[in-house]
Amino acid sequence: MNNPALPPLREVIAKHGLSASKALGQNFLFDEQLLDRIAAIPGSLKDQNVYEVGPGPGGLTRALLRAGAKVTAVERDRRCLPALEELSTAFPGQLRVIEGDAMKVDPAAEIGDPFHIASNLPYNVGTALAVGWLGGENWPPEWKSLTLMFQREVADRIVARPGTDAYGRLAILAQWRCEARIAMPVHRSAFTPPPKVMSAVVHLVPKEQPVGVRMAMLETLTAAAFGQRRKMLRQSLKPVPKALDALELVGIAADRRPETVTIEEWIELARKIDTLR
C-alpha cells in the first residue's frame, strides 16, 4: 500500500494560507492518530470506494487514502483544491476531487459501485445530507456504511431511545432501517478553530427494511407527531387521514405522547394506515 511521507497538516494549512470558513461550517482536524481512528471505524477500506463531503485541506482524506480507500471527495471551497491536488499526486489513482456543492451531488451516480460514506460533515449542512442519504423509498441504499462527524447534540438525536428528550424524527429515520451507534466522542479542542460544542462520530449500517412500510408515510406521521411533541397523539395525529383509526387497531393508546412510542410501534402504525387508505 502506498504510504508516502506527507507534511503535517498544519504546514499544509500555512503553505496554502487556509483558514476555516465559518460560512461553510468548517472546523479542521489536525490530529493524524485521531483521523486514522475515524478512518478505521467502517472496517478495512483497502480497495473500497469512499465518498467524502467537505474534505477541506484533506485531514480525513489522507487517513482514508492511507487505509487504501479509493476516495471521491466533494469540496466547494476552491481555496482547498490545491492541497487536495497534492494529495491526489501523492496517492496516484486513489483520489478524485469534485468541486461543487454536496447538496447537489448524487454520490451513487458519481461512483457507480457500492461505497462507504465517511466525512467530517460541515455543521451547517450535515443533518440535511444525512437525512437525504437515509431517506427515499429505495432500500437497501447504494452505500454500505455511514461514518459521520456531527455536533454531539445531533449525534445523540440519531441514536436516541424512546422516552428520552433527544428521541424524535431523526432517531426514527436513522434507526428504522439502520443499526446506529456513536463510534467515538471527539472533544472540541481537537478542532481548529475549536467549535463551541462537543462532537461525536456516528456509524450507521443498513439493515433490512421492514416490509410494507413507506418512508413517505413514516415521515408524515413523525412530522405531525413531533411537530407538537408535547401534545397527545389523539391531537397531533388528527390531521393525518386514518391515523386515529390505526392507533386503535394497532393498540397504541391515543393519550400517549410521541416520544414514548417505540420505533417498532411507529412502523406498525405507518403500515396500518396504508392498509386503511
Rank of each mutant, 00 (worst) to 15 (best):
Gly58Asn: 04
Lys22Ala: 13
Arg62Ser: 06
Leu65Phe: 14
Leu9Gly: 00
Ser44Leu: 03
Ala23Phe: 11
Arg66Asp: 10
Gln48Arg: 14
Arg62Cys: 11
Asn27Glu: 08
Gly68Met: 14
Lys15Ala: 15
Leu34Asn: 08
Gly59Met: 01
Phe28Ser: 01
Lys46Met: 09
Ile13Thr: 10
His16Tyr: 15
Thr61His: 00
Gln33Asp: 14
Ala14Gln: 12
Ala67Gln: 10
Gly56Cys: 08
Gln26His: 04
Arg10Trp: 13
Val12Arg: 02
Phe30Met: 04
Gly68Thr: 12
Pro55His: 01
Ile13Gly: 01
Glu11Val: 07
Leu9Ser: 10
Ala69Asp: 04
Leu18Asp: 03
Arg66Ile: 04
Asp47Cys: 04
Pro8Lys: 08
Leu34Gly: 04
Lys15Pro: 02
Gly58His: 01
Lys46Ala: 13
Gly25Asp: 05
Lys46Val: 10
Asp31Arg: 11
Glu32Leu: 07
Tyr51Asp: 03
Glu32Asn: 14
Ala14Ile: 08
Pro42His: 02
Gln26Met: 09
Val53Gln: 06
Gly25Lys: 10
Pro8Cys: 07
Ala40Pro: 03
Ala23Asp: 14
Arg66Ala: 13
Val50Arg: 01
Leu35Lys: 05
Pro42Arg: 03
Ala14Asp: 12
Ala14Glu: 12
Glu32Asp: 15
Pro57Thr: 06
Arg66Met: 12
Leu35Gly: 04
Leu18Tyr: 10
Phe30Trp: 01
Ala40Gly: 10
Lys22Phe: 06
Lys70Glu: 13
Ala14Phe: 05
Gly58Thr: 01
Pro42Gly: 07
Ala20Val: 13
Asn49Thr: 11
Ala63Gly: 11
Glu11Cys: 02
Gln33Phe: 12
Asp31Trp: 07
Leu18Phe: 13
Leu65His: 07
Ile41Cys: 08
Ala67Glu: 07
Val50Asn: 01
Asp47Pro: 10
Leu24Met: 14
Tyr51Met: 08
Pro8Arg: 09
Ala67Thr: 12
Gly43Thr: 02
Leu45Cys: 06
Val12Asn: 00
Phe30Gln: 08
Gly58Asp: 00
Ser44Arg: 03
Ala39Tyr: 08
Gly68Glu: 11
Ser21Met: 11
Val50Thr: 05
Gly25Asn: 05
Val71Pro: 01
Leu29Ile: 14
Asn49Met: 14
Leu34Met: 14
Arg10Cys: 09
Phe28Thr: 01
Gly54Asn: 08
Leu60Phe: 09
Ile13Met: 06
Ser44Tyr: 03
Leu45Ala: 03
Leu65Lys: 06
Arg37His: 09
Pro57Cys: 08
Thr72Trp: 14
His16Trp: 15
Ala67Asp: 10
Leu64His: 07
His16Ala: 14
Ala67Leu: 06
Gly59Val: 07
Gln33Trp: 13
Leu9Phe: 04
Ile13Arg: 09
Leu65Met: 12
Gly58Leu: 05
Val12Gly: 00
Val71Phe: 10
Asn27Val: 09
Thr72Ile: 15
Val71Ile: 14
Arg37Ala: 11
Ser19Arg: 15
Thr61Phe: 00
Glu11Trp: 02
Arg10Asn: 07
Ala23Val: 15
Glu32Met: 12
Arg10Leu: 13
Ser44His: 05
Ala40Trp: 09
Gly68Asp: 10
Val50His: 00
Ala20Arg: 01
Ala23Ser: 15
Lys15Tyr: 09
Arg37Ile: 07
Thr61Ile: 03
Ala69Thr: 06
Arg62Asn: 03
Leu65Pro: 06
Pro8Val: 04
